[in-house]
């Protein structure tokens, strides 16, 4: 049975450590597939102007394309060069909730993320995405320091 590991990236340099750990773990497991996921923070309950709404689809496509080309594709390429079976995915939503949903939907067995790069008042009030993921995930989560 193939083991599937989901690697959550946030576009920061610390993502490399998550990729490196996942590669190492996958080699030890053997039959393993890696899925690189990037979640664009987005809420269906935010407020927008009519003009922003009219351009939303275009912006969404641009955001997905940018995330793919700048974060996900290079990571997937790197994993493939190391002999891994890898693919990538970009989604919008709440980071913790969406990463877990991706993992469930794709049949993932574990989520690997880096320690959160968030800070300031948002982290103090709402907690970090990583902390929220650890508390709400339905699969094991490994947090790389």
């Amino acid at each position: 049975m193939t083991t599937k590991l989901v690697i959550g990236l946030d576009g920061e340099g610390s993502g490399d450590r998550a990729l490196s750990y996942a590669t190492d773990l996958a080699k030890r497991i053997g039959d393993c597939e890696l899925l690189v996921a990037y979640v664009i923070e987005w809420s269906p309950y935010s407020f927008q102007t009519a003009e922003e709404n009219a351009q939303r689809h275009k912006r969404r496509e641009e955001e997905i394309s940018t995330a793919m080309s700048r974060v996900v594709d290079p990571a997937v390429e790197g994993l493939k060069k190391n002999g891994m079976t890898a693919s990538g995915i970009v989604r919008h939503g709440d980071v913790a909730h969406t990463l877990n949903t991706i993992c469930e939907k794709e049949g993932g067995h574990q989520i690997i993320v880096c320690r959160s790069s968030e800070g300031g008042i948002t982290k103090r009030i709402f907690g970090s995405s990583t902390a929220n993921l650890v508390m709400s995930a339905t699969v094991p989560v490994t947090v790389i320091g």
């Binding site: 269906p44 407020f47 102007t49 009519a50 709404n53 939303r56 689809h57 969404r60 919008h92 969406t98």
Partner: peptide
């Protein structure tokens, strides 16, 4: 509330957002 919104469409204008925008007008 988003009960009938496809999660794969996340990032598009939600029903809530369209309602909120129209209400702000």
């Amino acid at each position: 509330k988003g009960d009938y919104s496809d999660p794969d469409d996340a990032g598009e204008v939600s029903h809530f957002q369209a309602l909120a925008t129209a209400l702000s007008g």
